[in-house]
Simulated assay, not measured.
Amino acid sequence: MNSKQGVILYGPPAAGKDTVTTELTELSSKYAQFRRLKVGTGKSAGYRMGTAEQLLKLEAAGDVVYVNARYGNTYVIDQPGVDAAFAAGVPVVHLGQVDGIQALVDGYPADWTRVLLWCPREVSAQRSAGRGDRDTTARLAAWDATREDLDAHPDMAWDLTVDTTVASPQEAARLIDQLLTKRAGTATA
């Protein structure tokens, strides 16, 4: 087992990835959200804003672990970014595509804990509207795509599944932290 531990939070928009990550960082300073490189416009919080030229350089160097397009933007998980995240502690990577999980697990050796955060579509709609998203319709289309993605990958193994309408963000963070602690103990045993 790899000594580098990372967390992948997968789920539809408004399932609680940001909120659970905030709770993880409050639980322990070892956790930090991995800030993907974002090429495009809109929300910049939680991202490293980049340019098309930067993306081309990363691609030419073979440093792109995963790239996807959504909401008119391009989102990149890059080798140098993940290296820096591991140097700082335990990265928490947010993903909404099973292919992204596979690309990260296969493309960046580490002990990745895969967590499925889930909530019903109507809850995503309420949460999106409640936080003032201007693109709730696009986020609901992404919710549908996430559901289809899960259905297309029934063999996907999850280390933990959390229904965020039942478990509080604090409880989800505690469960994730306990799981990583247990896995770290198993790795050293």
Rank of each mutant, 00 (worst) to 15 (best):
G62T: 00
A87E: 09
L27N: 03
T51H: 08
R36T: 01
A129E: 06
D163F: 10
R114E: 01
K4R: 15
Q170L: 13
R114T: 06
A88F: 10
I8H: 04
L37N: 02
N2L: 10
T21M: 04
G107Q: 10
N68Y: 15
A84T: 00
T25R: 15
N2V: 00
L116W: 12
V98K: 15
Q126M: 13
W143V: 00
G46K: 03
P169Q: 06
D99I: 02
G89I: 06
W143N: 04
R147L: 14
P120V: 00
V92S: 04
P13M: 10
A85N: 08
G132P: 09
R183Y: 07
Q102P: 10
A61T: 00
K4F: 12
A87T: 03
S124Q: 09
A52Q: 12
T21L: 09
V82C: 08
A138L: 15
T137S: 12
D78N: 14
I101W: 12
F34V: 03
A15D: 03
D163Y: 08
Q102K: 15
V7R: 11
T186E: 11
G107Y: 08
D99G: 12
T74E: 07
A129N: 12
P120T: 00
G46T: 03
K17A: 06
R139V: 05
V7E: 05
G81I: 03
D149G: 07
A129D: 08
A87K: 14
I77Y: 13
R35P: 03
R114I: 11
G132K: 11
V93A: 14
G96D: 11
E59Y: 07
L160D: 02
G6M: 04
E23I: 01
A69I: 00
D83C: 12
G81S: 12
A84D: 04
L37Q: 02
A138M: 13
L24T: 02
W112K: 14
R183P: 10
V98L: 14
D78F: 10
S29T: 00
D151C: 10
R147S: 05
A87D: 09
L58Q: 06
T113E: 03
G96M: 14
A125W: 11
Q97H: 15
V92D: 03
T186Q: 14
D18A: 05
Q97A: 15
L9G: 03
V64S: 07
V39G: 01
L55M: 07
R36I: 01
A184H: 05
V20L: 11
I101E: 06
G11P: 07
V123E: 12
D63H: 13
W118I: 01
